[in-house]
Design a protein around this nucleic acid. Structure first.
Lengths: 221, 221
DNA sequence: GAACGTACCGTACTTAGTACGAAAGTGCTA
DNA sequence: TAGCACTTTCGTACTAAGTACGGTACGTTC
């Protein structure tokens, strides 16, 4: 009777569990679903308990962005630079597809965490080892990262997910376009996007190859 | 005495004024500063008055994103495609630099407005007129837009603004790096970023040229 | 067992979005 | 000009969310 059956519930709270739960909530319902209260509920505790492990919501946001970066495969400066950079580009895209909310956060969080810095260091190191000058490395890295993040941003902004739901979403949208405005958009949609097997994600490889080829050409070799 | 000197204050409220003020607030203080209450104050009215011109905050966000797209110069399908596409890329970057919050919103708002659609239509039309096939146009456009948005995203995430404040921000950051971690990051920062005259925005041209050159090569000519 | 540190929580204050209905202004009709 | 309808603005209040402050429960150490 005195013991109200309050089961030990789960492992004790920890900063790590707080951050991992925060990511899980954002993955499931978008960054808007991540509140201190929803987080506490997910963890099986009351809201104020969270504050004993993190300073506030801003710290949570800064840290989960860094944890996302930590998920991206690092290139190793040893191997063929095109293979290494290509591998990390695909990894980055895959990770950002899993955590699309992270893209929006990048714009507002301006203090990079250790994983983010390590990530940048590995990329820069790989390009330097490939023979690019310091200035060329800066150019190349800005180009590659812009492409990767921008592609992820566009994927996140798409109203459909994967190749399966394209038709459901695009077809009714086409109705609106029969007014004759947007003729080129209609053409591209009907003749390309709505074709069976279309997947926007497949466009990634084309641009990546074009960029890496272009960069390779600028290498002394 | 009965009239409490409530001056007519300003022109009557309108949907247009609401949206323009919303953009002004977001420009000045970030998207976090845009609240219905701050918006009402800026407009000289009480919060609930805003709701007679827009349905809710979500509608405001959708519409200001579209208004940002409306600010970007459209390419015209008539001229030299590289010049047209290049012009609109620079315009897009400039606009997104003025309204960096729009980048973060793009990820969460999945219903494009009329200006956004018109924008896409003009770009696709320009590439088609240049001689690209439908499939190649899709590839090219995904590539170009990814680069432009991704570059803007990185610019927005920088802790400094413009060439003048780089040193102030980067120099103290270097202190942290003397531990020997991040050697390549240190090298690139000291030998490139901290050099006089450095401006991250200058990197934009390099990547854009590389991309357009690569695309031009794939054209039958 | 008294003092203390750690983890958790109850209460309450503040800011924000917005539902509801009333009030104030505007113009049109009889 | 009186009445009425429509538009625009606002007062009040409810809900959700971040978090300050202090309290409690439990373990550790001397």
């Amino acid at each position: 009777m005195p013991r109200p059956a309050k089961a030990p519930d789960r492992t004790p709270l920890s900063r790590d569990r707080v951050l991992r739960s925060a990511i899980a909530i954002a993955d499931a319902g978008g960054i808007g679903a991540l509140t201190i209260r929803s987080l506490a509920e997910e963890l099986g505790v009351k809201p104020m308990s969270v504050y004993h492990h993190v300073a506030g919501k801003a710290e949570i946001l800064d840290n989960i962005v860094d944890l996302v970066f930590a998920e991206i495969d690092l290139p190793s400066p040893g191997g063929d630079w095109t293979i290494e950079i290509r591998r990390r580009a695909h990894s980055a895209r895959k990770v950002l597809r899993r955590h699309p909310w992270a893209i929006g956060l990048m714009e507002s969080r301006t203090s990079p965490g250790p994983a983010t810095l390590k990530h940048h260091d590995a990329n820069i190191g790989t390009l330097r080892a490939a023979g690019f000058s310091v200035a060329m490395t800066a150019h190349a890295y800005a180009l590659i990262d812009s492409y990767v993040y921008g592609f992820a941003l566009q994927e996140a902004a798409l109203p459909f997910e994967g190749p399966d739901t394209v038709a459901e979403v695009a077809a009714p949208m086409m109705q609106l376009f029969t007014t004759g405005q947007y003729p080129h958009l209609v053409e591209l949609t009907t003749e390309h996007v709505l074709q069976p097997g279309y997947d926007f994600g497949d466009e990634f490889e084309f641009g990546l190859t074009l960029i890496l080829d272009g960069l390779a050409r600028s290498l002394p070799s």
